[in-house]
Design a protein around this nucleic acid. Structure first.
Lengths: 261, 261
DNA sequence: GCGTCAGGTTTCGCCAGGCGAAATATTTTC
DNA sequence: GAAAATATTTCGCCTGGCGAAACCTGACGC
Protein backbone atom coordinates (compact mmCIF):
# COMPACT_ATOMS: atom_id res chain seq x y z
CA UNK A 1 0.00 0.00 0.00
CA UNK A 2 2.42 2.63 1.20
CA UNK A 3 4.45 1.83 -1.92
CA UNK A 4 5.42 5.43 -2.60
CA UNK A 5 6.49 6.24 -6.11
CA UNK A 6 9.92 6.64 -7.62
CA UNK A 7 13.02 7.23 -5.56
CA UNK A 8 13.56 4.39 -3.16
CA UNK A 9 14.69 6.17 -0.03
CA UNK A 10 11.70 8.39 0.41
CA UNK A 11 10.47 9.16 3.90
CA UNK A 12 6.69 9.40 3.82
CA UNK A 13 6.00 11.90 6.58
CA UNK A 14 8.61 14.26 5.21
CA UNK A 15 7.19 14.28 1.69
CA UNK A 16 3.71 14.84 3.01
CA UNK A 17 4.74 17.62 5.35
CA UNK A 18 6.49 19.31 2.44
CA UNK A 19 3.29 19.11 0.42
CA UNK A 20 1.56 20.94 3.23
CA UNK A 21 4.28 23.57 3.43
CA UNK A 22 4.25 23.93 -0.32
CA UNK A 23 0.51 24.38 -0.51
CA UNK A 24 0.54 27.07 2.15
CA UNK A 25 3.45 28.90 0.60
CA UNK A 26 1.98 28.73 -2.85
CA UNK A 27 -1.42 29.92 -1.71
CA UNK A 28 0.18 33.02 -0.28
CA UNK A 29 -2.23 33.49 2.56
CA UNK A 30 -3.23 32.09 5.91
CA UNK A 31 -5.19 28.91 5.57
CA UNK A 32 -7.22 26.62 7.77
CA UNK A 33 -6.56 23.01 8.67
CA UNK A 34 -9.57 21.82 6.70
CA UNK A 35 -8.56 23.71 3.60
CA UNK A 36 -5.09 22.25 3.58
CA UNK A 37 -6.35 18.76 4.26
CA UNK A 38 -8.80 19.00 1.36
CA UNK A 39 -6.19 20.55 -0.94
CA UNK A 40 -3.41 18.05 -0.38
CA UNK A 41 -5.78 15.10 -0.02
CA UNK A 42 -4.62 13.81 3.34
CA UNK A 43 -6.64 12.99 6.44
CA UNK A 44 -7.31 15.93 8.72
CA UNK A 45 -5.57 14.32 11.65
CA UNK A 46 -2.40 13.84 9.69
CA UNK A 47 -2.34 17.35 8.34
CA UNK A 48 -3.06 18.62 11.82
CA UNK A 49 0.08 16.95 13.10
CA UNK A 50 2.19 18.38 10.30
CA UNK A 51 0.81 21.86 10.91
CA UNK A 52 1.71 21.53 14.56
CA UNK A 53 5.15 20.22 13.76
CA UNK A 54 5.89 22.84 11.14
CA UNK A 55 4.67 25.54 13.49
CA UNK A 56 6.78 24.26 16.36
CA UNK A 57 9.87 25.01 14.31
CA UNK A 58 8.46 28.34 13.08
CA UNK A 59 8.47 27.16 9.51
CA UNK A 60 4.79 27.96 9.76
CA UNK A 61 3.10 30.54 11.90
CA UNK A 62 -0.06 29.54 13.72
CA UNK A 63 -2.43 32.44 14.04
CA UNK A 64 -4.29 31.13 17.06
CA UNK A 65 -7.26 33.52 17.27
CA UNK A 66 -8.29 32.68 13.71
CA UNK A 67 -6.82 29.21 13.60
CA UNK A 68 -5.01 29.89 10.38
CA UNK A 69 -1.58 28.81 9.30
CA UNK A 70 0.80 30.86 7.20
CA UNK A 71 4.47 30.93 6.33
CA UNK A 72 6.57 31.46 9.44
CA UNK A 73 9.66 33.30 10.53
CA UNK A 74 12.09 30.40 10.28
CA UNK A 75 11.18 29.80 6.66
CA UNK A 76 11.54 33.45 5.81
CA UNK A 77 14.84 33.78 7.61
CA UNK A 78 16.15 30.70 5.85
CA UNK A 79 14.96 32.05 2.54
CA UNK A 80 16.66 35.31 3.22
CA UNK A 81 20.06 33.90 4.13
CA UNK A 82 19.87 31.67 1.11
CA UNK A 83 19.04 34.58 -1.15
CA UNK A 84 21.76 36.71 0.33
CA UNK A 85 24.49 34.16 -0.01
CA UNK A 86 23.24 33.15 -3.39
CA UNK A 87 23.45 36.72 -4.59
CA UNK A 88 26.78 37.29 -2.89
CA UNK A 89 28.26 34.34 -4.73
CA UNK A 90 26.75 35.36 -8.01
CA UNK A 91 28.08 38.88 -7.75
CA UNK A 92 31.46 37.95 -6.30
CA UNK A 93 32.44 35.08 -8.54
CA UNK A 94 33.24 36.98 -11.75
CA UNK A 95 35.13 39.57 -9.75
CA UNK A 96 37.07 36.85 -7.96
CA UNK A 97 37.93 35.27 -11.27
CA UNK A 98 39.32 38.58 -12.44
CA UNK A 99 41.51 38.87 -9.36
CA UNK A 100 42.64 35.32 -9.90
CA UNK A 101 43.55 36.09 -13.49
CA UNK A 102 45.41 39.22 -12.47
CA UNK A 103 47.58 37.63 -9.76
CA UNK A 104 47.30 33.94 -10.46
CA UNK A 105 46.94 33.28 -6.77
CA UNK A 106 44.09 31.68 -4.87
CA UNK A 107 41.16 33.99 -4.09
CA UNK A 108 38.83 33.18 -1.19
CA UNK A 109 35.39 34.35 -0.20
CA UNK A 110 34.29 33.66 3.35
CA UNK A 111 31.70 34.54 5.95
CA UNK A 112 31.76 34.35 9.70
CA UNK A 113 29.62 31.75 11.47
CA UNK A 114 29.66 31.34 15.22
CA UNK A 115 33.13 32.68 15.67
CA UNK A 116 34.67 30.80 12.74
CA UNK A 117 35.54 31.77 9.22
CA UNK A 118 33.82 29.60 6.65
CA UNK A 119 35.02 29.49 3.06
CA UNK A 120 32.08 29.77 0.74
CA UNK A 121 33.82 30.22 -2.58
CA UNK A 122 37.36 29.70 -3.79
CA UNK A 123 39.04 30.36 -7.11
CA UNK A 124 42.33 28.56 -7.22
CA UNK A 125 45.63 29.60 -8.61
CA UNK A 126 46.84 27.43 -11.46
CA UNK A 127 50.43 27.44 -10.26
CA UNK A 128 51.95 24.21 -9.10
CA UNK A 129 52.75 25.76 -5.76
CA UNK A 130 49.52 27.26 -4.52
CA UNK A 131 47.44 27.68 -1.43
CA UNK A 132 44.27 25.70 -1.24
CA UNK A 133 41.56 25.56 1.33
CA UNK A 134 38.30 23.92 0.36
CA UNK A 135 34.80 25.26 0.33
CA UNK A 136 33.09 24.70 3.64
CA UNK A 137 36.33 24.52 5.58
CA UNK A 138 36.58 26.42 8.85
CA UNK A 139 39.42 28.49 10.27
CA UNK A 140 39.69 30.57 13.43
CA UNK A 141 39.09 34.27 13.01
CA UNK A 142 42.24 35.50 14.70
CA UNK A 143 44.61 33.42 12.55
CA UNK A 144 43.37 34.44 9.11
CA UNK A 145 43.42 37.65 7.15
CA UNK A 146 39.77 36.96 6.33
CA UNK A 147 38.90 36.79 10.00
CA UNK A 148 40.93 39.83 10.95
CA UNK A 149 39.33 41.85 8.16
CA UNK A 150 35.91 41.02 9.52
CA UNK A 151 36.89 41.43 13.18
CA UNK A 152 38.35 44.86 12.56
CA UNK A 153 35.07 46.18 11.20
CA UNK A 154 32.80 44.52 13.73
CA UNK A 155 31.31 46.64 16.50
CA UNK A 156 33.34 46.78 19.72
CA UNK A 157 31.29 44.27 21.75
CA UNK A 158 31.21 41.56 19.06
CA UNK A 159 34.90 41.95 18.45
CA UNK A 160 35.70 41.66 22.14
CA UNK A 161 33.59 38.54 22.43
CA UNK A 162 35.87 36.81 19.95
CA UNK A 163 39.08 38.23 21.37
CA UNK A 164 38.20 37.26 24.91
CA UNK A 165 37.52 33.64 24.00
CA UNK A 166 40.48 31.32 24.19
CA UNK A 167 42.63 31.86 21.12
CA UNK A 168 43.84 28.68 19.49
CA UNK A 169 47.44 28.34 18.34
CA UNK A 170 47.77 27.23 14.74
CA UNK A 171 51.46 27.88 14.15
CA UNK A 172 54.25 29.33 16.22
CA UNK A 173 53.52 32.67 14.54
CA UNK A 174 49.87 32.75 15.58
CA UNK A 175 49.17 35.89 17.58
CA UNK A 176 47.71 34.82 20.90
CA UNK A 177 47.90 38.06 22.80
CA UNK A 178 44.59 39.92 22.66
CA UNK A 179 46.37 43.25 23.14
CA UNK A 180 48.58 42.70 20.14
CA UNK A 181 45.56 41.63 18.12
CA UNK A 182 43.66 44.73 19.17
CA UNK A 183 46.53 46.88 17.96
CA UNK A 184 46.67 44.99 14.67
CA UNK A 185 42.94 45.39 14.17
CA UNK A 186 43.22 49.14 14.68
CA UNK A 187 45.71 49.22 11.88
CA UNK A 188 43.46 47.10 9.70
CA UNK A 189 40.64 49.50 10.32
CA UNK A 190 42.66 52.53 9.23
CA UNK A 191 44.31 51.07 6.15
CA UNK A 192 41.34 48.89 5.17
CA UNK A 193 43.01 45.52 4.74
CA UNK A 194 44.49 42.74 6.88
CA UNK A 195 47.67 40.74 6.35
CA UNK A 196 48.60 37.42 7.88
CA UNK A 197 51.88 35.65 7.35
CA UNK A 198 52.26 32.10 8.52
CA UNK A 199 49.83 32.61 11.38
CA UNK A 200 47.31 30.08 10.16
CA UNK A 201 49.54 27.69 8.27
CA UNK A 202 53.31 27.80 8.28
CA UNK A 203 53.67 28.01 4.55
CA UNK A 204 50.99 30.49 3.61
CA UNK A 205 50.32 34.18 3.72
CA UNK A 206 47.12 36.00 3.07
CA UNK A 207 45.80 39.52 2.38
CA UNK A 208 42.16 40.08 3.25
CA UNK A 209 39.51 42.79 3.08
CA UNK A 210 36.00 42.94 4.48
CA UNK A 211 32.92 43.25 2.30
CA UNK A 212 30.63 45.80 3.87
CA UNK A 213 26.90 46.24 3.47
CA UNK A 214 25.22 49.63 3.37
CA UNK A 215 25.38 49.85 7.15
CA UNK A 216 29.13 49.16 7.01
CA UNK A 217 28.65 45.77 8.57
CA UNK A 218 31.32 43.27 7.46
CA UNK A 219 29.12 40.34 6.44
CA UNK A 220 31.83 38.65 4.37
CA UNK A 221 35.48 38.89 3.48
CA UNK A 222 37.63 38.46 0.42
CA UNK A 223 41.24 37.37 0.38
CA UNK A 224 44.21 36.44 -1.73
CA UNK A 225 46.40 33.69 -0.39
CA UNK A 226 49.81 32.63 -1.58
CA UNK A 227 52.78 30.59 -0.42
CA UNK A 228 55.03 32.60 1.92
CA UNK A 229 57.86 32.23 -0.59
CA UNK A 230 56.15 34.67 -2.90
CA UNK A 231 55.68 37.24 -0.20
CA UNK A 232 56.83 40.71 -1.16
CA UNK A 233 55.80 44.21 -0.27
CA UNK A 234 54.83 44.88 -3.85
CA UNK A 235 52.58 41.82 -3.94
CA UNK A 236 50.96 42.77 -0.67
CA UNK A 237 50.23 46.32 -1.62
CA UNK A 238 49.10 45.42 -5.12
CA UNK A 239 46.83 42.70 -3.73
CA UNK A 240 45.48 45.01 -1.05
CA UNK A 241 44.47 47.69 -3.47
CA UNK A 242 42.98 45.22 -5.96
CA UNK A 243 41.04 43.51 -3.18
CA UNK A 244 39.80 46.81 -1.82
CA UNK A 245 38.40 47.88 -5.12
CA UNK A 246 36.94 44.42 -5.72
CA UNK A 247 35.25 44.56 -2.34
CA UNK A 248 33.89 47.99 -3.09
CA UNK A 249 32.56 46.76 -6.41
CA UNK A 250 30.83 43.81 -4.79
CA UNK A 251 29.20 46.02 -2.15
CA UNK A 252 28.10 48.32 -4.91
CA UNK A 253 26.46 45.60 -6.96
CA UNK A 254 24.79 44.16 -3.90
CA UNK A 255 23.42 47.52 -2.85
CA UNK A 256 20.06 47.52 -4.66
CA UNK A 257 18.76 44.90 -2.26
CA UNK A 258 19.97 45.06 1.29
CA UNK A 259 21.73 41.85 2.22
CA UNK A 260 20.71 41.58 5.81
CA UNK A 261 18.01 44.07 6.45
CA UNK B 1 13.17 6.95 24.42
CA UNK B 2 11.58 8.63 21.42
CA UNK B 3 9.76 10.87 23.92
CA UNK B 4 10.27 14.07 21.91
CA UNK B 5 10.13 17.31 23.82
CA UNK B 6 7.42 19.92 24.17
CA UNK B 7 4.44 20.15 21.82
CA UNK B 8 2.52 16.92 21.83
CA UNK B 9 1.68 16.43 18.18
CA UNK B 10 5.19 16.51 16.84
CA UNK B 11 6.10 14.23 13.97
CA UNK B 12 9.67 13.09 14.43
CA UNK B 13 10.81 12.61 10.85
CA UNK B 14 9.44 15.99 9.87
CA UNK B 15 11.28 17.85 12.62
CA UNK B 16 14.49 16.05 11.81
CA UNK B 17 14.21 16.68 8.09
CA UNK B 18 13.63 20.35 8.81
CA UNK B 19 16.80 20.41 10.87
CA UNK B 20 18.64 19.07 7.87
CA UNK B 21 17.07 21.62 5.55
CA UNK B 22 17.78 24.36 8.02
CA UNK B 23 21.41 23.42 8.42
CA UNK B 24 21.98 23.36 4.70
CA UNK B 25 20.20 26.64 4.15
CA UNK B 26 22.02 28.33 6.98
CA UNK B 27 25.39 27.08 5.87
CA UNK B 28 24.86 28.70 2.52
CA UNK B 29 26.81 26.23 0.46
CA UNK B 30 26.72 22.70 -0.85
CA UNK B 31 27.41 20.18 1.84
CA UNK B 32 28.13 16.47 2.08
CA UNK B 33 26.07 13.79 3.75
CA UNK B 34 28.69 13.25 6.43
CA UNK B 35 28.92 16.91 7.26
CA UNK B 36 25.18 17.26 7.73
CA UNK B 37 24.98 14.10 9.78
CA UNK B 38 27.72 15.31 12.06
CA UNK B 39 26.23 18.79 12.33
CA UNK B 40 22.68 17.81 13.18
CA UNK B 41 23.74 14.81 15.22
CA UNK B 42 21.71 12.14 13.50
CA UNK B 43 22.80 8.78 12.11
CA UNK B 44 24.16 8.96 8.61
CA UNK B 45 21.56 6.56 7.27
CA UNK B 46 18.75 8.70 8.53
CA UNK B 47 20.18 11.90 7.14
CA UNK B 48 20.80 10.11 3.87
CA UNK B 49 17.10 9.34 3.59
CA UNK B 50 16.11 12.91 4.34
CA UNK B 51 18.54 14.24 1.79
CA UNK B 52 17.04 11.90 -0.79
CA UNK B 53 13.53 12.86 0.17
CA UNK B 54 14.17 16.58 0.20
CA UNK B 55 15.94 16.30 -3.14
CA UNK B 56 13.11 14.32 -4.66
CA UNK B 57 10.83 17.31 -4.14
CA UNK B 58 13.52 19.77 -5.26
CA UNK B 59 13.63 21.40 -1.86
CA UNK B 60 17.25 20.40 -2.05
CA UNK B 61 19.45 19.99 -5.08
CA UNK B 62 21.69 16.98 -5.28
CA UNK B 63 24.88 17.79 -7.11
CA UNK B 64 25.67 14.25 -8.15
CA UNK B 65 29.25 14.58 -9.48
CA UNK B 66 30.43 16.03 -6.17
CA UNK B 67 27.84 14.39 -3.96
CA UNK B 68 26.89 17.63 -2.35
CA UNK B 69 23.50 18.92 -1.36
CA UNK B 70 22.37 22.53 -1.53
CA UNK B 71 19.16 24.50 -1.49
CA UNK B 72 16.94 23.54 -4.40
CA UNK B 73 14.62 25.13 -6.90
CA UNK B 74 11.37 24.30 -5.13
CA UNK B 75 12.51 26.00 -1.98
CA UNK B 76 13.63 29.06 -3.87
CA UNK B 77 10.46 29.29 -5.89
CA UNK B 78 8.39 28.93 -2.76
CA UNK B 79 10.44 31.59 -1.04
CA UNK B 80 9.98 33.87 -3.98
CA UNK B 81 6.21 33.58 -4.20
CA UNK B 82 6.01 34.08 -0.49
CA UNK B 83 8.10 37.20 -0.67
CA UNK B 84 6.17 38.58 -3.59
CA UNK B 85 2.76 38.07 -2.12
CA UNK B 86 3.94 39.23 1.26
CA UNK B 87 5.13 42.49 -0.24
CA UNK B 88 2.08 42.86 -2.45
CA UNK B 89 -0.21 42.61 0.56
CA UNK B 90 1.89 44.95 2.61
CA UNK B 91 1.88 47.59 -0.09
CA UNK B 92 -1.71 47.10 -1.18
CA UNK B 93 -3.48 46.98 2.17
CA UNK B 94 -3.25 50.64 3.18
CA UNK B 95 -4.26 51.68 -0.31
CA UNK B 96 -7.18 49.29 -0.23
CA UNK B 97 -8.26 50.70 3.10
CA UNK B 98 -8.25 54.17 1.59
CA UNK B 99 -10.47 53.03 -1.27
CA UNK B 100 -12.74 51.37 1.21
CA UNK B 101 -13.00 54.57 3.23
CA UNK B 102 -13.69 56.61 0.13
CA UNK B 103 -16.52 54.44 -1.26
CA UNK B 104 -17.54 52.33 1.69
CA UNK B 105 -17.75 49.32 -0.58
CA UNK B 106 -15.86 46.05 -0.48
CA UNK B 107 -12.37 46.14 -1.99
CA UNK B 108 -10.77 42.92 -3.23
CA UNK B 109 -7.23 41.94 -4.09
CA UNK B 110 -6.77 38.76 -6.11
CA UNK B 111 -4.28 36.80 -8.13
CA UNK B 112 -4.73 34.19 -10.82
CA UNK B 113 -3.85 30.58 -10.07
CA UNK B 114 -4.36 27.83 -12.62
CA UNK B 115 -7.16 29.57 -14.44
CA UNK B 116 -8.99 30.75 -11.35
CA UNK B 117 -9.14 34.02 -9.49
CA UNK B 118 -8.12 33.70 -5.85
CA UNK B 119 -8.95 36.38 -3.33
CA UNK B 120 -5.92 37.13 -1.24
CA UNK B 121 -7.06 40.20 0.63
CA UNK B 122 -10.44 41.81 1.21
CA UNK B 123 -11.46 45.01 2.95
CA UNK B 124 -15.16 44.92 3.60
CA UNK B 125 -17.71 47.65 3.37
CA UNK B 126 -19.36 48.44 6.68
CA UNK B 127 -22.77 48.83 5.13
CA UNK B 128 -25.47 46.37 6.10
CA UNK B 129 -25.95 45.46 2.45
CA UNK B 130 -22.52 44.60 1.16
CA UNK B 131 -20.72 42.16 -1.04
CA UNK B 132 -18.52 39.67 0.63
CA UNK B 133 -16.29 37.00 -0.69
CA UNK B 134 -13.79 35.49 1.68
CA UNK B 135 -10.06 35.26 1.48
CA UNK B 136 -8.99 32.13 -0.31
CA UNK B 137 -12.23 31.80 -2.26
CA UNK B 138 -12.02 30.97 -5.95
CA UNK B 139 -14.00 32.37 -8.86
CA UNK B 140 -13.75 31.77 -12.59
CA UNK B 141 -11.82 34.36 -14.55
CA UNK B 142 -14.46 35.11 -17.18
CA UNK B 143 -17.22 35.88 -14.68
CA UNK B 144 -15.41 38.43 -12.55
CA UNK B 145 -14.12 41.92 -13.14
CA UNK B 146 -10.92 40.81 -11.43
CA UNK B 147 -10.50 37.99 -13.90
CA UNK B 148 -11.34 40.09 -16.93
CA UNK B 149 -8.90 42.76 -15.85
CA UNK B 150 -6.14 40.18 -15.72
CA UNK B 151 -7.21 38.37 -18.88
CA UNK B 152 -7.28 41.57 -20.88
CA UNK B 153 -3.64 42.28 -20.12
CA UNK B 154 -2.36 38.76 -20.54
CA UNK B 155 -0.44 37.88 -23.69
CA UNK B 156 -2.55 36.51 -26.56
CA UNK B 157 -1.74 32.80 -26.10
CA UNK B 158 -2.39 32.72 -22.35
CA UNK B 159 -5.63 34.59 -22.80
CA UNK B 160 -6.81 32.24 -25.49
CA UNK B 161 -6.00 29.23 -23.35
CA UNK B 162 -8.51 30.45 -20.79
CA UNK B 163 -11.13 31.52 -23.33
CA UNK B 164 -10.97 28.25 -25.20
CA UNK B 165 -11.54 26.16 -22.07
CA UNK B 166 -15.16 25.43 -21.26
CA UNK B 167 -16.68 28.53 -19.70
CA UNK B 168 -18.81 27.85 -16.66
CA UNK B 169 -22.19 29.54 -16.24
CA UNK B 170 -22.58 31.25 -12.88
CA UNK B 171 -25.72 33.28 -13.54
CA UNK B 172 -27.97 33.80 -16.53
CA UNK B 173 -25.94 36.94 -17.27
CA UNK B 174 -22.60 35.13 -17.44
CA UNK B 175 -20.99 35.70 -20.81
CA UNK B 176 -20.33 32.31 -22.35
CA UNK B 177 -19.50 33.32 -25.87
CA UNK B 178 -15.72 33.59 -26.37
CA UNK B 179 -16.22 36.09 -29.19
CA UNK B 180 -18.21 38.43 -26.99
CA UNK B 181 -15.61 38.05 -24.24
CA UNK B 182 -12.82 38.83 -26.67
CA UNK B 183 -14.59 42.02 -27.67
CA UNK B 184 -15.11 42.97 -24.02
CA UNK B 185 -11.47 42.35 -23.24
CA UNK B 186 -10.42 44.64 -26.09
CA UNK B 187 -12.47 47.36 -24.50
CA UNK B 188 -10.97 46.62 -21.10
CA UNK B 189 -7.53 46.94 -22.59
CA UNK B 190 -8.20 50.35 -24.10
CA UNK B 191 -9.98 51.92 -21.16
CA UNK B 192 -7.94 50.13 -18.49
CA UNK B 193 -10.68 48.69 -16.30
CA UNK B 194 -13.25 45.89 -16.39
CA UNK B 195 -16.88 45.91 -15.28
CA UNK B 196 -19.09 42.97 -14.45
CA UNK B 197 -22.72 43.19 -13.50
CA UNK B 198 -24.47 40.12 -12.17
CA UNK B 199 -22.28 37.81 -14.19
CA UNK B 200 -20.72 36.07 -11.22
CA UNK B 201 -23.53 36.42 -8.69
CA UNK B 202 -26.99 37.73 -9.43
CA UNK B 203 -26.94 40.45 -6.86
CA UNK B 204 -23.46 41.88 -7.26
CA UNK B 205 -21.48 44.09 -9.56
CA UNK B 206 -17.81 44.70 -9.70
CA UNK B 207 -15.24 47.10 -11.19
CA UNK B 208 -11.74 45.72 -11.56
CA UNK B 209 -8.29 46.81 -12.70
CA UNK B 210 -5.10 44.83 -13.21
CA UNK B 211 -1.94 45.49 -11.23
CA UNK B 212 0.98 45.42 -13.62
CA UNK B 213 4.63 44.75 -12.94
CA UNK B 214 7.41 46.56 -14.73
CA UNK B 215 7.02 44.28 -17.73
CA UNK B 216 3.30 45.13 -17.86
CA UNK B 217 2.39 41.64 -16.75
CA UNK B 218 -0.89 41.55 -14.80
CA UNK B 219 0.17 39.55 -11.77
CA UNK B 220 -2.77 40.64 -9.62
CA UNK B 221 -6.01 42.60 -9.77
CA UNK B 222 -7.87 45.03 -7.59
CA UNK B 223 -11.63 45.50 -7.52
CA UNK B 224 -14.52 47.22 -5.88
CA UNK B 225 -17.68 45.19 -5.51
CA UNK B 226 -21.12 46.40 -4.56
CA UNK B 227 -24.72 45.20 -4.62
CA UNK B 228 -26.28 45.75 -8.07
CA UNK B 229 -28.82 48.09 -6.49
CA UNK B 230 -26.16 50.70 -6.01
CA UNK B 231 -25.01 50.48 -9.59
CA UNK B 232 -24.75 53.86 -11.30
CA UNK B 233 -22.58 55.29 -14.03
CA UNK B 234 -21.14 57.80 -11.61
CA UNK B 235 -20.16 55.06 -9.18
CA UNK B 236 -18.60 53.00 -11.93
CA UNK B 237 -16.55 55.79 -13.38
CA UNK B 238 -15.52 57.13 -9.99
CA UNK B 239 -14.52 53.63 -8.87
CA UNK B 240 -12.67 52.98 -12.10
CA UNK B 241 -10.55 56.07 -11.85
CA UNK B 242 -9.83 55.55 -8.16
CA UNK B 243 -8.90 51.92 -8.78
CA UNK B 244 -6.68 52.86 -11.67
CA UNK B 245 -4.69 55.31 -9.66
CA UNK B 246 -4.54 52.88 -6.73
CA UNK B 247 -3.20 50.19 -9.03
CA UNK B 248 -0.65 52.57 -10.44
CA UNK B 249 0.43 53.49 -6.94
CA UNK B 250 0.83 49.85 -5.94
CA UNK B 251 2.91 49.09 -9.02
CA UNK B 252 5.01 52.11 -8.26
CA UNK B 253 5.73 51.08 -4.69
CA UNK B 254 6.47 47.54 -5.74
CA UNK B 255 8.88 48.67 -8.41
CA UNK B 256 12.15 48.73 -6.43
CA UNK B 257 12.19 44.94 -6.32
CA UNK B 258 10.77 43.11 -9.28
CA UNK B 259 7.87 40.95 -8.23
CA UNK B 260 8.38 38.04 -10.56
CA UNK B 261 11.77 38.32 -12.06
C1' DG C 1 -31.79 29.21 25.75
C1' DC C 2 -31.11 24.84 23.09
C1' DG C 3 -30.05 22.27 18.87
C1' DT C 4 -27.19 22.06 15.03
C1' DC C 5 -23.26 22.39 12.44
C1' DA C 6 -18.62 23.15 11.09
C1' DG C 7 -14.52 23.37 12.47
C1' DG C 8 -10.56 21.84 15.54
C1' DT C 9 -8.57 18.45 19.07
C1' DT C 10 -7.87 14.11 21.46
C1' DT C 11 -7.90 9.09 21.99
C1' DC C 12 -6.43 4.65 20.86
C1' DG C 13 -5.02 0.29 18.94
C1' DC C 14 -2.77 -1.38 14.64
C1' DC C 15 0.91 -2.27 11.98
C1' DA C 16 3.29 0.26 8.12
C1' DG C 17 7.31 1.93 7.55
C1' DG C 18 11.11 4.51 9.71
C1' DC C 19 15.30 3.29 12.08
C1' DG C 20 20.20 2.49 12.39
C1' DA C 21 23.91 -1.11 12.79
C1' DA C 22 26.42 -3.44 9.89
C1' DA C 23 27.67 -5.07 5.45
C1' DT C 24 28.77 -3.58 0.88
C1' DA C 25 30.07 -0.62 -2.83
C1' DT C 26 32.46 3.34 -4.37
C1' DT C 27 35.69 6.95 -4.57
C1' DT C 28 39.77 9.22 -2.92
C1' DT C 29 44.28 9.23 -1.01
C1' DC C 30 48.92 8.01 -0.34
C1' DG D 1 47.62 -1.19 -4.94
C1' DA D 2 46.40 -0.94 -0.17
C1' DA D 3 44.04 1.91 2.96
C1' DA D 4 40.84 5.28 4.29
C1' DA D 5 36.92 7.93 3.77
C1' DT D 6 32.53 8.32 2.04
C1' DA D 7 28.25 6.89 0.04
C1' DT D 8 24.71 3.18 -0.58
C1' DT D 9 22.11 -1.00 0.43
C1' DT D 10 20.28 -4.60 3.35
C1' DC D 11 17.55 -6.24 6.94
C1' DG D 12 15.08 -7.31 10.97
C1' DC D 13 13.20 -4.71 15.08
C1' DC D 14 9.78 -2.20 17.07
C1' DT D 15 8.76 2.58 17.44
C1' DG D 16 5.93 5.95 16.56
C1' DG D 17 3.07 7.54 12.70
C1' DC D 18 -1.62 6.69 11.18
C1' DG D 19 -6.45 7.76 10.69
C1' DA D 20 -11.28 6.47 12.18
C1' DA D 21 -14.02 7.86 15.41
C1' DA D 22 -15.13 10.15 19.58
C1' DC D 23 -14.88 14.41 21.66
C1' DC D 24 -14.68 19.43 22.20
C1' DT D 25 -15.76 24.29 21.11
C1' DG D 26 -17.68 28.25 19.30
C1' DA D 27 -20.90 30.25 15.99
C1' DC D 28 -25.35 30.51 14.32
C1' DG D 29 -30.36 30.01 13.81
C1' DC D 30 -34.62 29.63 15.70
Amino acid sequence: MGAKQGGGYIVGPVIKALQVLDYIGESGREVSLTEVAKAVGLPKTTVFRYLQTLSSTSFLRHDIPNDRYGIGAAFRSLARTDRSLHRLREVAMPIMRNLNREFNETINLAIETQGWIIYIEIVESTRALRMQAHIGARDPMHTTALGKAILAFLAEPEREKVLSASLSERTYRTVLDACVLRRQLNEVRTRGYAVEIGENEDVSMCVGVPILDDLSFPFAALSLSAPVQRRSDTLISAAASALLSASREISEKLRPEALFE
